[in-house]
Design a protein around this nucleic acid. Structure first.
Lengths: 121, 121
DNA sequence: CTAAGCTCTGACATCCATGTCAGAGTCAAA
DNA sequence: TTTGACTCTGACATGGATGTCAGAGCTTAG
């Protein structure tokens, strides 16, 4: 498919699809005209990219990480240990943030529970 | 304490402490001289801010989320209906942030699971 | 009191992810 | 074949987090 359709199907600005390619996250084929030609699977890849970005990873890290995901797709891709370590570190940070927010929410719940009943609705 | 000490104790650039204040994440008192005067508790607050930032939250989101954390400080929360509503709204924001981070972590887990076994340690 | 070291504000700079636009070429339906 | 929609590249702009610097005003040890 061409870039317009991929953009429509993912909700991601064409400009960004080109940018992701430039950053090594996507590598569509090219028609003789020069038009980019994307695989069906790129739809899912783009969504993954977006999720990883919103998780706080940068494009460079994502570039090293996407091939791992592709392992699942059946291709063999060697991944160096330090990347794995990076990912684990990032996972750790996410976990900390999650726990922090969970604790905050529990506290909030306690306060809300302590609120006079007549205010609860 | 003044900004230099807070910076030293948290490892966060003074420039950023001023920026966080500007974004409504910190609001130190001011000495007559105009110098910022931070609470002891701000050390922990700054660390929290950094953790949340590295988890991919932006300062605006953090600003909506930090007040919940501040309940923890043991302050009495005046319980009028609008406060209750505020708290519920805060809880909602917390829940959203938590869910986003959980989704991010799940994705990361999927990537890590796909990593070659020999690299798992 | 003075010098050294802090702090203040405000401006400018940088990096990354995005947005937007212009000018030129391509595709496809009428 | 023409026209409108699509795509290409490249450049410039923006927004958020961060770094850096200048000039001026505090603070405090000596």
């Amino acid at each position: 498919m061409r870039i317009g359709e991929l953009s429509r199907r993912t909700g991601v600005h064409e400009r960004l699809l080109r940018y992701y390619e430039q950053q090594g996250l996507l590598y569509p084929e090219r028609a003789p005209s020069g038009y980019r030609s994307y695989q069906e699977s790129d739809v899912e890849t783009v969504r993954r990219i977006r999720r990883l970005l919103s998780a706080g990873l940068n494009t460079e890290t994502i570039a090293t990480v996407l091939p791992c995901v592709r392992v699942k797709a059946g291709n063999l891709v060697p991944v160096c240990p330090e990347v794995i370590d990076d990912l684990r570190a990032h996972r750790e940070r996410l976990t900390q943030a999650i726990e922090e927010l969970l604790a905050s929410r529990d506290l909030l719940d306690a306060v809300l529970e302590a609120a006079p009943l007549e205010l609860t609705r």
